[in-house]
Amino acid sequence: MNKPLLEVRGLSKRFAIGSRFSSEGRRIVHAVDNVSLTVEHGETLGLVGESGCGKSTLGRSIVRLYDLTGGQLLFDGQDIGTRSLKALRPLRPRMQMVFQDPSASLNPRRRVGDLVAEPLRLHSRMSRAEIRTRVAELFKLVGLLPDQIERYPHEFSGGQRQRVGIARAIALNPDLVVLDEPVSALDVSVQAQIVNLLADLQEKLGLTYIFIAHDLSVVRQVSSRIAVMYLGSIVEEGPAEALMAAPAHPYSQALISAVPVVTTDAGGARRQRILLAGDVPSPLAPPSGCRFHPRCPVAQDRCRTDRPELRPHGPGRRVACHFPVTEPG
């Protein structure tokens, strides 16, 4: 068996917030807490969870936009978790990122062709002419017109700007692209275009994606596997369709049941929803035991003290729960 493209072992990321002089003093947020996962070549791992669950922090830690607090990060067999920024530089072209808001990640004062050329100028030894050819090629690849190369970002619609962001990310033929909510800011009718584009590019270029989003139906559409996060940890992981059809963790179950869907049947039977009590607890003071237990509909005494580990639960699936809501199978 081939070795995985990415292996994350016990990754943690903590942030210190507040100053020593504030009333509460300096406090520690456990944004990502002991996460382990692997990503195989050519697959798409979907990371889902609600705001504050740590999915974006995990994504950014994986491409080392953050320094890790703990754990190991193996990219193509090489340990990159503790490398200095300088030592990381040769690997940068191989892992790229696409952000949610393309208008915020594109410099408004530069032409989009220039923005797409930037990674090529920084990381390749291409001549000017070669870069120009490559930019034209990239524009075609992401469905933009050649005469748009000289335009500025504000002249583009949201969907087109996201295409520019994608062109920039794939310019250096990366192996891994981390997509952080790439379609969340787009209109529904435009979302589908970008989702299709990402699928096409993956097929053509053999890309590996980590797709971070809160929209479960979009994640299900693009992912081969899905990992559900809650308060900094993965609570469940498995093949996209199987996990969505029969979630094993009570949190995944509640999350999936809360997604409003269009009912096309004329009778319009509303789906049974599991309403969770209360809010997501603050990651400053996570609950004891299983972090989901204060809101969990099936919590028992053991869940209050004993934190469940992510354990195998049927083929290709893992769940961190003492009392999974489905039988492994």
Binding site: S157, G158, G159, Q160, D187, V188, S189, V190, Q191, A192, Q193, V195, N196, A199, L216, S217, V218, R220, Q221, A240, E241, M244, A245, I256, V259, V261, V262, T264
Partner: peptide, 25 residues
């Protein structure tokens, strides 16, 4: 019809490609 079609389904078969609406509003 197009708008409803462009929403990826939450259950059942996943379409290989989503029926997207070309262009933007």
């Amino acid at each position: 019809r197009a708008l409803m079609g462009s929403i990826p389904p939450l259950t059942g078969e996943r379409p290989r490609r989503l029926p997207a609406i070309p262009g933007s509003p």
